[in-house]
Design a protein around this nucleic acid. Structure first.
Lengths: 332, 332
DNA sequence: AAATTCGTTGCAACCGGTTGCACGGACTTC
DNA sequence: GAAGTCCGTGCAACCGGTTGCAACGAATTT
C-alpha cells in the first residue's frame, strides 16, 4: 500500500542503497542523486518504515513508559511532560499501564518484544525489583520518582523524600503546630517510607508530638477513609503532613464534614502541587516537586543511554519547595 | 543479545520454520517438536520480536492513541481505560500528544512510520479534517468523543452532544431556574457547538431566557476567566450549563469569590462527571458521559477493523445521565 | 503390496530497510 | 601520462521473523 524504498529507487532510477543513504544523515550521497531521490520520495509520499530500519540498526526510537498512577491527577501532568518531551526528541512513548500489577515479567516481555530503546518507570510506588528486571534484560532504564539508593545500580531521578519529610515537619513547627501527624500513602512504597522517616525524625528533633498512619493507596477515597478512621479513634492532631495532594484533599473533606476548619482548627500540608491544589475551592498548601526538571532530566538520561548503554548509574535529586496557600496558618 | 528464532531452532534441533510455527497459533506442528521448541525457548528466555513479525505479516499490534486533552483530569480516566483496554487485547498504545497542533501531517507520518494497525483519536476538539487525514492514508481510524455526522465517513463513538444540551436545559427548567446561560468551551470545537445548539433550542422551547458565551479552552483557568468577564458585564444568570466539569469548577470558584452561593443564588451543572466532581469539596452536579462504554466500544471497533479494514463507518452514541450533587437546587 | 491421504517439516524467498565492500570515475599529484 | 586519492554508487548479505511449496514418512485404504 504505502511506498517502499524499492518504489522510490525505481522512480528515481537509482539503487535502494542510494535511497536509504539519502534518508540516513551522515551518509555519503551526491547532491544530484539526493535531489532525484527527494523528488521521487515526495511524489510517492514515501517515508521510511521505522520498524524495518529498527530491525537492522537495533534502534527503534521507541521508549517504554511504565506507570501505575492512573488515578492521581498529578500523573496527567507527568504524562503530558513525558509524551511531549519524548516526541520533541523524535522518540515515541509506548505506554504500559501497570494498574496494580507488581510482577515485572509481563512488562519486560512486552517491551522486549517491541525492542524498545529504553524504559522510563514513572512511579513512586513501583518496587525496586521492578526496575531491576529491565536492567537484567539489558534494557536501559531510568526510574523517575524513585528512591535514591546509596549504592545505585539504576538511574534514579526524583526528589529526596526524606528531606521532604523534614521540610514538612519544620514547616508545621514554624507555624506553631505542636501535635502533628503523618498521613502517608501505601506503607510499602519507598516514597512513603522515606517521607515518614524524615518527617518523624525532624518532628522529634523539634520536640513535636508526632504520629503516623497510612492510607491504602494514593487516592482521594483512601485519604478520606484513613482520616475517618483517625477521627473515630479520637480528636485530630493540630496538623497533618499528607504524603500526596490527593490524600490531603480527601483528608480535608472529612475534616470539614466533621466540623473542623482549616487552618484554624487543623492544618494540612500536601505534596506534589498538582494543578488542582491551586484551584480556589481547594487552595491546598503543599510541597512542590519540580516536575519539569525531573522529567526533562529523566528523558536526558534515557537519551544518553542510547549511545552509552553502560553509562554509570546516576542519582539526580531536585529540591522541593513549599507553596503557601490556605490550609496552613501563616508564619507568626 | 536477546535470543532469536535461529538460536532456538539450533538448540531444539529443528528448522527456523518449526520454531516460528510453534509460536503462530493455528499452524501445524507436532506435539513432539512443539515440546522441544518450547523447552529450548524457555531455556533461552526467547520471545518473538514483534517488529520483525510485523514486517512480514503487516500486523504490528500497535495502536496510535492521539489526543490533545492533557490538561483535563477526565482525560486521565480516559487514558487509563484506553491503555488497559488495549493491552488486555494484546495491543500496545503508541501515544501522540497533540498539545495544540492542528495540522495532522506530522501525526500521520509518525504513525505511518511505525505501521500502526489503527488509530484512535480521543478528543472532542480535534477538527474532522484531522481524523480524515488518517483515513486518507489508509489507516483504520475511530474518533472517540467526536461529532456524529449524518453521512458518516469515519467511525465515531461518543454521546449526542445536542441531546446533552437539551437535557441540561430541561434539568435547569425543572428546578425552577428561568434565566440560564451556556458557558461553553472553545467555540471551534464541534462538541461545544452541539451542546450550545441543544441547550439554546430547548431553553427557548421551555420559555427560558438563555444566553451563551465561550471559554478559550476546556480548563479551570479559562472557566474562571470567562465567568469573571461575565460578572463584569452584569449580574449572573440564575444558572449555568458549563461545557465541561473543569469549566464548571472554574466558574464556581469565581462565583463564590464574588459572594454568590450555590445552589442558593446561582446553579451550575457541568458535563463529564470526572472523579473530582464527586469530591466533597467540589460536589458538582453534572451530566455523566458513559466513559467505559465509549472506550470499550472504540476499542471494539478498532479491533474489528484489523480484520475488515473497509468496514462501513459507524456511529455509536451512548446516553448520558444526570448525576445529582450540590450545585443545583433539588426538584421542587 | 501398492496407492492414496494427510500431517509435519525444511527450503528458500520475502517483508523493508541498512551497510561493508569493491568498483568506477573524477580529480590531484608528481 | 601514470599513479594515487577520494567520493559516490551498486551489489549482496543481513536484521528476525513468515509462509508457499515441495518433499517426506507414517497411517490408511484398496
Amino acid at each position: 500500500m504505502a511506498a517502499t524504498l524499492k518504489d522510490v529507487a525505481a522512480r528515481a532510477g537509482v539503487s535502494r542503497s542510494a535511497v536509504s543513504r539519502t534518508f540516513t544523515k551522515g551518509a555519503s550521497v551526491s547532491e544530484k542523486t539526493r535531489r532525484k531521490v527527494e523528488k521521487a520520495a515526495a511524489d510517492l509520499g514515501y517515508s521510511p518504515n521505522a520498524l524495518a530500519s529498527g530491525l537492522t540498526t537495533g534502534r527503534t526510537r521507541l521508549i517504554g513508559l511504565v506507570s501505575n498512577n492512573f488515578h492521581n491527577p498529578i500523573f496527567l501532568e507527568v504524562f503530558d511532560l513525558f509524551t511531549r518531551g519524548l516526541q520533541d526528541r523524535g522518540l515515541r512513548p509506548l505506554i504500559i499501564n501497570l494498574s496494580g500489577e507488581t510482577d515485572p515479567t509481563d512488562s519486560v516481555r512486552m517491551l522486549r518484544q517491541y525492542s524498545v530503546d529504553g524504559v522510563i518507570v514513572a512511579s513512586s510506588t513501583a518496587p525496586p525489583s521492578f526496575t531491576s528486571a529491565f536492567r537484567d534484560s539489558n534494557i536501559p532504564v531510568v526510574h523517575s520518582f524513585g528512591r535514591a539508593s546509596v549504592t545505585p545500580d539504576i538511574h534514579v531521578v526524583g526528589v529526596d523524600n526524606v528531606e521532604c519529610g523534614r521540610m514538612a515537619a519544620r514547616t508545621l513547627a514554624d507555624r506553631g503546630y505542636r501535635k502533628v501527624g503523618f498521613l502517608g500513602g501505601p506503607e510499602s512504597a519507598t516514597s512513603t517510607q522515606d517521607r515518614a522517616k524524615g518527617f518523624l525524625e525532624e518532628a522529634r528533633r523539634l520536640n513535636l508530638t508526632a504520629s503516623s498512619s497510612y492510607a491504602a493507596q494514593y487516592s482521594f477515597e483512601s485519604g478520606r477513609d484513613e482520616m475517618r478512621r483517625l477521627l473515630r479513634l479520637g480528636p485530630p492532631q493540630d496538623a497533618y503532613f499528607c504524603g500526596d495532594d490527593v490524600l490531603s484533599i480527601g483528608a480535608l473533606s472529612v475534616l470539614h464534614d466533621a466540623g473542623f476548619d482549616t487552618p484554624a482548627n487543623v492544618g494540612v500540608i500536601g505534596l506534589n502541587d498538582m494543578e488542582i491544589a491551586g484551584w480556589d475551592n481547594i487552595d491546598l498548601t503543599t510541597i512542590q516537586q519540580p516536575l519539569q526538571q525531573i522529567i526533562a532530566s529523566s528523558i536526558e538520561i534515557v537519551v544518553s543511554m542510547l549511545d552509552q548503554p553502560d553509562r554509570h548509574p546516576e542519582i539526580r535529586l531536585f529540591p522541593c519547595q513549599i507553596v503557601e496557600r490556605g490550609t496552613l496558618r501563616p508564619l507568626p
